[in-house]
Simulated scan of single mutants.
Amino acid sequence: MSVSHPVQTSIETKMNAQLVLSHLEVINESHMHSVPPNSETHFKLVVVTDAFEGKRSVARHQIVYKILADDLAGPVHALALHTYTPAEWNQANASAPASPQCLGGSKADRL
């Protein structure tokens, strides 16, 4: 039996519905943080689209935030964004930087 991933699926669906994408990666990084098993709270998105052409990083992020507003107001606690035009993606050798390890610790560690 497979595990359901409703938040990840929601993100993928919304991004594909709102942008013409060359590439999309929605990576659940919740396991790297102090959250219960099978959580969907921390995500890394790699988004490649012509819609980012001529836009600075902040404007690109605002586009994604608008698309995912409901998810960000609810289940998603953290979102790491890596946004590229197709040309930038090719220059980056079709790879985004690795995410750093969480240094926040657990709430129990602070008691």
Rank of each mutant, 00 (worst) to 15 (best):
A69Q: 15
I27F: 02
H31I: 04
Y65T: 04
G74M: 09
F43M: 04
P6E: 01
P37V: 04
P36D: 11
D70R: 03
L111G: 08
L19N: 12
D71N: 12
V20L: 13
S4R: 14
H33M: 07
H33F: 11
V48H: 00
L79Y: 01
A80E: 08
L103M: 11
P36R: 01
H42P: 03
R60M: 06
E40D: 08
F43I: 02
S106A: 01
V76P: 04
T41L: 10
H42L: 00
H82D: 07
L19A: 11
V35I: 03
A80R: 01
H33W: 13
A96R: 10
D109P: 03
Q101C: 08
R56K: 15
A73S: 12
N38K: 14
G74H: 07
F43C: 00
Q18P: 01
G54C: 02
N16D: 10
S106T: 02
D71H: 11
A17L: 15
E12V: 12
V26L: 03
W89C: 02
I63E: 15
H23D: 05
H77C: 00
P6G: 04
G54D: 02
N93D: 08
T41A: 12
A98I: 07
Q101W: 04
A51H: 13
K55R: 15
P37N: 00
N38R: 15
V26G: 00
G104T: 03
Y84E: 13
H42N: 05
R60W: 04
K66V: 04
P36K: 04
V35L: 02
D70H: 12
N28T: 07
S2D: 11
N38P: 00
P100R: 13
A51I: 09
P37Q: 05
V3C: 10
H77F: 08
A78E: 06
C102D: 03
T49V: 03
D50Q: 14
E53Q: 14
L68R: 05
D109W: 02
K55F: 08
R56T: 11
L21K: 01
A78P: 03
S30C: 06
H23R: 11
A51Y: 05
V3D: 12
V35W: 03
H33A: 09
P100V: 10
A108F: 03
V35N: 00
V26M: 03
K107T: 05
F43V: 05
V48M: 00
I11G: 10
L21Y: 02
A17P: 08
A98M: 10
L111D: 12
Y84P: 14
D70F: 02
V7T: 14
F43R: 01
T41R: 13
E53G: 04
M32E: 09
E29N: 07
V7K: 11
K14D: 12
I63T: 14
S95H: 13
P75C: 06
K107E: 07
E25T: 11
